[in-house]
Design a protein around this nucleic acid. Structure first.
Length: 200
DNA sequence: GGAACGATCTGC
DNA sequence: CAGATCGTTCCC
């Protein structure tokens, strides 16, 4: 059974929603992947958040209703996708950092222009799924972008979820707001914490 | 008005 | 490890 996540699921703090998203299915049109790595971002209390210094045209969606997607453009060439959580008026989002491709893998390969490392990074998964500026603000509650629970992992025999500090940021670097599957292979995206390898 | 810097990825 | 590449933010 595959059940679409509802507004109540998303209407909680990002640090609560984030670990709950691990193992869920992200569906974008014809493409499906299982969420394996996420990070939580907050607002005025989180110096690493895009919303730290208040509302702007870029981060506007973060302040809106939960269950929508916040897509931003960065480094002049990449898009990253977040799930908006919490309550209206308070900035809250969960960055989707990695998924395990399920289908349509051929389409993901075509969009990525390669057959390896399809979705093991926030920019990569957006490219593989075709997510861009035009998807910013789109609802996950209806329509062809959504997140589903298919009952995996089996909680009684579930794989452990590992918690660690967030990656690729320069402020609030110690908050343990990153979650990923224990068996998830974290490859070449984890090279960038100055001062040592704190990542598993 | 201008400069600095990314919630990144890739190939060398 | 450095280059790509440009929108957003911040500081004149």
């Amino acid at each position: 059974m595959r059940q679409r996540l509802t507004e109540e699921f998303f209407a909680r703090h990002s640090t609560v929603v984030a670990p709950d998203l691990i193992g869920k299915l992200l569906v974008v049109g014809e493409c499906t992947g299982r969420i394996t790595e996420v990070e939580a971002y907050s607002g005025a209390d989180d110096a690493a958040s895009h919303a730290y210094r208040g509302r702007s045209s870029r981060n506007d969606v973060m302040f809106g209703p939960a269950g929508h997607i916040y897509v931003y453009f960065t480094y002049g060439m990449h898009f990253c996708a977040n799930v908006v959580t919490g309550t209206v008026g308070v900035a809250n989002a969960v960055l989707l950092r990695a998924i395990e491709p399920i289908d349509d893998i051929e389409q993901m390969v075509n969009r990525r222009g390669r057959s390896d490392n399809l979705t093991n990074g926030p920019g990569k998964l957006c490219q593989a799924l075709g997510l861009d500026r035009s998807d910013d603000g789109t609802s996950l509650l209806t329509g062809d972008i959504g997140i589903y629970d298919d009952g995996w992992p089996d909680r009684s025999a579930g794989r452990a979820i590992v918690v660690s500090p967030r990656i690729g940021i320069t402020r609030a670097v110690d908050l343990p707001w990153r979650w990923h599957l224990a068996a998830e292979r974290i490859e070449r995206n984890d090279r960038r914490r100055p001062g040592g390898s704190r990542t598993p």
